[in-house]
Simulated scan of single mutants.
Amino acid sequence: MSDSRTRTDRTPYDALLLLSFGGPEGPEDVVPFLENVTRGRGIPRERLVEVGKHYFLFGGVSPINEQNRDLLAALRKDFADHGLDLPVYWGNRNWAPYLVDALREIAADGHRRVLVLATSAYAGYSGCRQYRENLADALAVLAEEGLPELTVDKLRHFYNHPGFVEPMAEAALAALGTLPEAVRDTAHLAFTTHSIPVAMADSSGDPADPARGHDGGAYVAQHLEVARLVAAAVADATGVADRPWRLVYQSRSGAPHIPWLEPDICDHLEELHGAGAAAAVMVPIGFVSDHMEVKYDLDTEAAARAAELGLPAARAATVGADPRFAAAVRELVLERAATERGSRPARCALGTLGPSHDVCAVACCPNPRAPRPAAAEQ
């Protein structure tokens, strides 16, 4: 086989599925979308209307679907530009285009071996296992309908891949550059991600993974690794070696009596102000794109809190459809394909934790309510 063919050999896979959360695309979609998200939890409709106020502030439209369209286009362009003949499909967990419909389309087009890119970079129940549970549910529907059987594998966590970290560091530098020059060298970095219950964080990751035993489970350990990498890149670029930084959280949605990861970003901004900090840059390392939780929780709520405090603050962009991220996905596809063919390809990862596992263990990131079947595990 020629070198060029080896570099684009995606066998045994014949399709890639971009799997995301989904979001409403109009005011009439908001409550039905939230009903999908919270199905089985017994949350009253009037409560969902209250929760939906964030979406109504933006015309009932979440940015996430349009951003996934942009990522889909970026992946297809990168694949075509590099000679990778692999069709890319898109399906969501909670809104159209739905996951089950995307799998139906994949089956109808004659594909049988599918790789999945979930738009979550980290280990954890909501960011990994729940997607795999949804895949198992959708595959069961296809089996009931008598459609051809699909084999589905999920790409490894990409949190420490250069194609994810480097655009994030560049975005942090760009945000830093928007602050008044007098405060740039002393501005704090606040790395934000979605808060989750402490118990869920502690159980995140593969029990056999050393990262699970450090810093509060794999979820926290992986975020701290990215924060360290980005902070180091910012230090190298600015020459400020001792810039303070902290991992903080946002978007808490659970019952108040259940411990969740803290501190919240707004509380952290207050703490910074009280300590005399000159400025802050919010870096949303926990999110692939500027979806609603970034637009509301950071750009609206946290920005307003910083303004009330008189604390200069800026927000870094997410990776989104950055060409480097699209290239990273291509590399992950070819890496996994080579592994399935019995090769030992290079596995790119920055930092000290190393590349994540390809296949999740059954005990990985357990469902906090009750065990459920999940795809792509062993």
Rank of each mutant, 00 (worst) to 15 (best):
D267I: 04
M168E: 00
D202M: 12
A302R: 06
A172D: 04
V30Q: 08
V234S: 06
G320N: 15
P12N: 09
R369Y: 11
E35P: 04
D215G: 00
L86D: 04
A208S: 13
A121Q: 07
L84G: 08
N367V: 06
D322P: 10
R330N: 12
A233Y: 00
F56V: 05
E301Y: 09
E28L: 08
A304W: 00
G274V: 02
V329M: 08
E50G: 13
T192W: 00
G59T: 03
E105D: 15
D322H: 14
N36F: 03
V116W: 11
C266D: 14
D29I: 05
W245Y: 15
C348M: 09
Q250R: 10
A277D: 05
F79Q: 08
P207D: 09
T352D: 15
E170W: 01
R5W: 09
R246N: 04
D185C: 12
Q130V: 11
D358W: 14
R252K: 05
L179M: 12
C364Q: 14
P162A: 06
C365A: 12
L332Y: 01
L155T: 12
E270I: 06
D85Y: 05
V281S: 13
P263K: 01
V234Y: 03
A313M: 13
R347I: 05
N36R: 14
P323K: 12
I64E: 02
A337W: 02
D206G: 09
S4N: 02
S251W: 00
R76E: 11
V240W: 03
G163Y: 11
L115E: 07
P244R: 02
S343F: 15
E340G: 00
D137R: 10
